[in-house]
Structure formats: C-alpha cells, structure tokens
C-alpha cells in the first residue's frame, strides 16, 4: 500500500446512521435508570442522540451523553457534566491513533488519546459497555479506572 493510500482513508467517520441512533436511544432508556431524556437533535436529519442524566460523576449534579454512530460502524460517545468534565469513547480512523480510542477526562482533548478499553463492535454491545463504564465511574464518584476493561465485580 502506498503512502498516498494511507493518507486518504476511504472514509473518515461516515454518514450518521439514523436507525442506529434510534436503536441506541431505546436501549439506553431501558438500561440506565438515571436517564431523564433521550432525544435526536433533529427528527428529519439526526446527527446526535443526546441523553440527559439526572446525576453526574462525583461533584457533578447533572450530565449528558452525546452519541453518534455511522453507517460504517464508527462511533463517538461523549460524556459531559455540569462540573465541566468530559470524556469520550470513540471508534473511527484517526491519524497516528488506534481506531478505537479514548479521550480522557477532564477535557477529552482531541489529542493525545489512549487506546479504548471497549473492544466490542455491535451497537447492542458498545452501548452496554459505555453505560457500564459510566456506571462504574458514577458509583466510585471519580474517573479513575474509567478506561480499564477489567473491573472488580
């Protein structure tokens, strides 16, 4: 493969999959008792699913999870709370970074990123994994170990 091929990936993120967003919305509402609202930003042209949470990690009192999912199975799940902390579990081609990567708290900067602890691919599994990691941070009241795949039961 030539350097040229490497620099021009077939897709960067890809078009958002409206049907996937609706599936994720219904699943998160089922899984997470703290969900207060779960809405698509535009019913006709949805790009982001926003899930409002009634509490946040540690000092935060509310939080939001913004989810995007593309036809190619790329995704971004972005946590943000009213204490201004952010993190993101992502999966998409990114130069000099693993496809599955984690933007760490508190700022979730574009770079540097870490390899993500989430290795599953299906909508049903990624959604459950994101909810589970958020739950762990919520119960602990902090972000330590948020990107660890292995957790004490």
């Amino acid at each position: 493969m030539t350097a040229d091929d490497a620099e021009t990936p077939r897709e960067v993120f890809g078009p958002i999959d409206a049907s996937a967003l609706r599936t994720i919305r219904d699943l998160i509402v089922d899984l997470e008792p703290l969900v207060e609202s779960a809405t698509l930003d535009d019913p006709l042209n949805p790009r982001t699913l926003s899930v409002g949470l009634a509490d946040g990690v540690g000092a935060a009192s509310t939080a939001r999870l913004d989810v995007r999912w593309s036809l190619q199975g790329n995704y971004a799940a972005h946590y943000t709370d009213d204490a201004d902390r952010n993190f993101r579990f992502d999966c998409h081609p990114k130069p000099e970074a693993p496809r599955r990567h984690f933007h760490p708290p508190p700022d979730a900067p574009s770079r540097p990123v870490e390899p993500s602890c989430i290795s599953v691919s299906e909508v049903a599994l990624v959604t459950r994994a994101v909810v589970q990691q958020w739950r762990i941070a919520y119960k602990r009241g902090g972000f330590d170990g948020l990107n660890d795949a292995e957790n004490p039961p």
Partner: peptide, 25 residues
Amino acid sequence: AVVDADSDHGAVLTEWQTTRRNLAL
C-alpha cells in the same frame, strides 16, 4: 485533505454526508 473526524472539517464532512442521506430518506 480531511483525514481526522475530530477536526472542524471532519465534522462538516460527516454533516454533509449525513444530510445528503437523510434528504434522500
């Protein structure tokens, strides 16, 4: 030369492709 979805141009690219598909639907 958009290669990073996390860039501003990456966001425009996704939005444009998404809008084109949602228009057809």
